[in-house]
Design a protein around this nucleic acid. Sequence first.
DNA 1: GATGCTAGCTTAAGCGTTTTAGTGCAGCTG
DNA 2: CAGCTGCACTAAAACGCTTAAGCTAGCATC
Lengths: 298, 298
Amino acid sequence: MARVTLKDVATASGVSIATVSFVLNDAAGQTIPAATRDRVRRAAAELGYVPHGMARALREGTSRLVLLNTAGLPPGGSLRSFIEGLEDELDQHGHALLVRHGTGRSGSLRRVVEAAAPRAVIDLAGLYAGTGTDVDDGGWIDGLAAHTATQIGHLASRGHHRLALALPDDPRLARLASLREAHTRQIAEALGLAESVVIRVGDDRAAHRDALDSHPGVTAVAAFDDDTALRVLSGTNRTDLAVIGFDETPHGALWKPSLTTVRIDAAGYGRRAARRALGHDAGDAPVQASRVIVRESA
Amino acid sequence: MARVTLKDVATASGVSIATVSFVLNDAAGQTIPAATRDRVRRAAAELGYVPHGMARALREGTSRLVLLNTAGLPPGGSLRSFIEGLEDELDQHGHALLVRHGTGRSGSLRRVVEAAAPRAVIDLAGLYAGTGTDVDDGGWIDGLAAHTATQIGHLASRGHHRLALALPDDPRLARLASLREAHTRQIAEALGLAESVVIRVGDDRAAHRDALDSHPGVTAVAAFDDDTALRVLSGTNRTDLAVIGFDETPHGALWKPSLTTVRIDAAGYGRRAARRALGHDAGDAPVQASRVIVRESA
DNA sequence: GATGCTAGCTTAAGCGTTTTAGTGCAGCTG
DNA sequence: CAGCTGCACTAAAACGCTTAAGCTAGCATC
């Protein structure tokens, strides 16, 4: 049950550990005949050799881990798919995902970074709260304008002219919310719609119901995400109101009326984020365009 | 920006790296005067020394990572809170959480394990699917009987006598589902209720609606989890039916009727799982008893 | 005044890798 | 046949840490 190391493979195949390392890593600039390569590879497979990530990390100065910091970000819609895509792609390149949901003290992120020496850090929390730095989410934010256009476009095509934009009042989503607001304004203007009303949606249903009621001219609500959309639906007593979500969650389909929403290829963005984190070219990880899932609510 | 190592701290405080290591780890059996300790600790703090987890892992044979394998387990209710508790407690003991949602090939789990040399593996996926081994979920499963009693007890106290148990047809939850079934039967019997009916809830609403309709004597449904409960509510046309969820999710409160459910201290179990993973005594990580969140649906 | 004991250190090995700098040998060149 | 080149490797250092073993000075003991 003990760990199989390079040394074991080396003795088994009658060469030095250096040679084994060269063979298994396909090291460039080494002239090793096919016969030897075969022997080594066979031995490695037979013994079930798996490189020791920590040893490698020590030597190379950086581990094959990528750290994702979500720091208490609400689980909203796609986070899970995003993570799946991310993990999948990392896997494919021999890396693993280290997650910090870390509701705790922010200083501890630094500690984890130094202790785990990750290859890269994806700091969604910072990115979405606006305190962010130069980290990368695979273009998620970049795609936001297009996805917003998908959402608003649908309402426009249904003949709605005066919209409300429902944003969450969660400070952790502050930056995303203000981006969405800007995009919505831009697109509404481009489509020749009336200026949209912004309502804040939190735990207090009465608050956003009142906000909506005070704008009777509004016929449709574009929500920040499905969760926000469901809160709007749940809070309002106007049955004529069209509501569209964003970033599909499974629950929306169960609702009455079932929630029309925008499906975003979160896994695709996850894969892209992974590629960028590893320094690969992101171009070849395609992301599908967002599209409207038409159901009953809009 | 280069990494601060033991060596740096050693030179700064005028001792050897061994001494520094002893001081910083409070090594037993070493006689080091307070003056020296202070000097070392001060230097470490000043330089911002953070131990290199990988180096330590190499030396100690095991890293300060704990691997959680959820392997595509549906995000159901408490998983997130569980993870938060887990991570929080691990943090407190200088460990970090490595997550594999790993929808992919199961063999890759082994690879990750060998590559990351985690201190422990928590294999929820295996545990809940029934293929599980001797891993530990902090007593989550052990507590299941009690939580089920909370749920069924509520229905009984409301005068319901003939129940349906709504289980998901997701094979990944097979073991959990059958456990819940067993517990429900036991408790129902103990409470003197009529034998309960089991219905399977999947994506096809008509199926479980029909199943329910064919048992008109059933006045209440105890669901496997909130998601299942919402599917039942969404599928049925019987307004008199009482439905209670399990393992509270945020969405239930928004529903009409709002979902009565059982709140479980998932974070507590997470913390326990962490303690057990680290080999601490789990006893001193208290878990709150489950309790019913009474809303409109039951 | 040799011996032993303790306090307060230091030395050095070793964890499993990667990688630089060789080494020995065969074959070819001039 | 000395010198060179290319092949097929190997030796050894280094990454940062822990820890067993050792070492020295100072003091107490007989």
